Computed example of a mutant assay.
Amino acid sequence: MACWLYEALLLFAVALLATLLFSVATQMRNALQHRQWLTAFLAVVLGIYCSWFWARGQTLPMKTWRIAIVDRHGRRLTQGRAALRYVYCSMWVLPPLLIAQGRFAGWDLAVVFSGWVAVWALLSRFHPQQQFWHDAWAGTRLVDASVLAPRPASETITA
Rank of each mutant, 00 (worst) to 15 (best):
G80Y: 08
Q36S: 15
R85H: 13
R103T: 01
L97K: 01
L77K: 00
L11M: 06
L97I: 00
A31M: 08
V87L: 15
A40M: 13
M28N: 04
A25P: 01
P95C: 04
A8E: 03
R81E: 08
P95G: 04
R76E: 08
V24M: 11
L20N: 04
A68C: 04
N30E: 15
F41L: 11
C50D: 13
G74T: 09
R29T: 09
L42S: 06
T19I: 04
A25F: 13
A31F: 12
T59M: 13
F12M: 10
M91R: 01
A43N: 06
A43H: 06
S51H: 09
V70P: 01
V14D: 02
M91D: 05
R72N: 13
L84I: 15
Y86A: 08
L97M: 10
A83M: 15
W52F: 15
L60R: 13
G80T: 14
L21A: 13
Y86M: 10
P61I: 08
V24I: 15
S23T: 12
T19S: 14
T78D: 03
V24F: 09
Q27E: 10
A82H: 05
A18L: 06
Y49P: 03
A100I: 03
A40L: 15
I99W: 03
Y86V: 10
L21H: 02
T78C: 03
V44P: 05
E7S: 09
L16D: 00
A82K: 05
F12W: 10
L17Y: 04
S51Q: 08
T59Y: 11
V45E: 14
F22M: 07
P96Q: 03
T39L: 05
W37Y: 12
F22L: 10
T64E: 12
S51I: 09
V14Q: 06
I48R: 07
H34R: 05
A55F: 05
L46S: 09
Q79I: 14
L10D: 00
C50R: 04
K63T: 09
I69R: 03
Y49S: 04
P61A: 12
A100L: 03
A13M: 09
T19H: 06
H73D: 15
V93D: 09
W37P: 00
E7T: 07
F53E: 06
L11A: 01
W65C: 11
T78H: 00
R56M: 15
G80I: 11
H73M: 14
Q33I: 02
C89H: 00
R85Q: 14
V87Y: 07
I48W: 09
A68Q: 02
L21I: 12
A100C: 04
N30I: 09
R75E: 15
C50P: 01
G80P: 01
L9W: 05
T26R: 14
A18Q: 05
I48C: 14
V87K: 11
R85T: 11
L97C: 00
R76S: 11
L42Q: 07
L77A: 01
L16H: 09
R76L: 14
A55P: 02
T26I: 09
G80E: 13
N30T: 12
P96R: 04
A55Y: 04
P96E: 01
R29M: 02
A15P: 08
Q101G: 00
S23Y: 02
G102Y: 04
A100M: 02
M28I: 08
I69S: 03
